[in-house]
């Protein structure tokens, strides 16, 4: 049996086709095949949340999926949130910068990708909801306080989150 399988996946609006080993994790595919290294890997067993991406709009752990399983699907990574140049930030990104919602920034892409669909469903969350939404993403630097503050700031921002 040919050890490689084809995967055709749309990432941040761009279609990619590759032949990969079925065992290649989606996280490794995004980072090392497509060079989208904004998606980080922290535990590879689905706990830390750093590798969170959107699969057809829903947040999933990219370390708990094989790349081949994304065949025919739509993936959004942190690189897809802003315009790519870094000049224009997504409102949530801007709020994180404003509220000091990140320190080392390693967990941040996963946190953002968790929050984008959460805020789509809960445009005006209370603190408990925000903290529960964040509870699947580990951050060792911030103590979460300023992440919560950033989410609140983002909810008050004039433009609503995209993606």
């Amino acid at each position: 049996m040919d050890p490689h399988a084809n995967v055709e996946v749309t990432v941040n609006g761009v279609r990619h086709r590759r032949a990969v080993e079925p065992r290649l994790l989606l996280s490794d595919f995004l980072r090392h095949e497509l060079g989208l290294t904004g998606t980080h890997v922290g535990c590879e067993h689905g706990v830390c949340g750093a590798c969170t991406v959107l699969l057809d709009g829903d947040a999933v752990r990219s370390c708990l999926m094989f790349a081949v399983q994304a065949d025919g699907h739509d993936v959004t990574t942190v690189e897809g949130l802003s315009d790519g140049s870094g000049e224009t930030l997504h409102p949530l990104q801007a709020a994180f910068r404003e509220a000091h919602g990140l320190q080392c920034g390693f967990c941040t892409p996963g946190v953002l990708m968790t929050l984008v669909p959460f805020l789509r469903e809960h445009p005006d969350p209370d603190e408990r909801q925000i903290r529960e939404a964040l509870s699947g993403n580990l951050c060792r630097c911030t103590g979460y306080q300023n992440i919560v503050a950033a989410v609140r700031l983002a909810c008050g921002a004039p433009s609503s989150p995209r993606a």
């Binding site: 689905g46 949340g49 969170t52 699969l55 829903d58 947040a59 708990l64 509870s135 699947g136």
Partner: peptide, 9 residues
């Protein structure tokens, strides 16, 4: 059951 990211899959 775990977290939304897990329940989505």
């Amino acid at each position: 059951i775990a977290h939304p990211q897990i329940r989505n899959r």
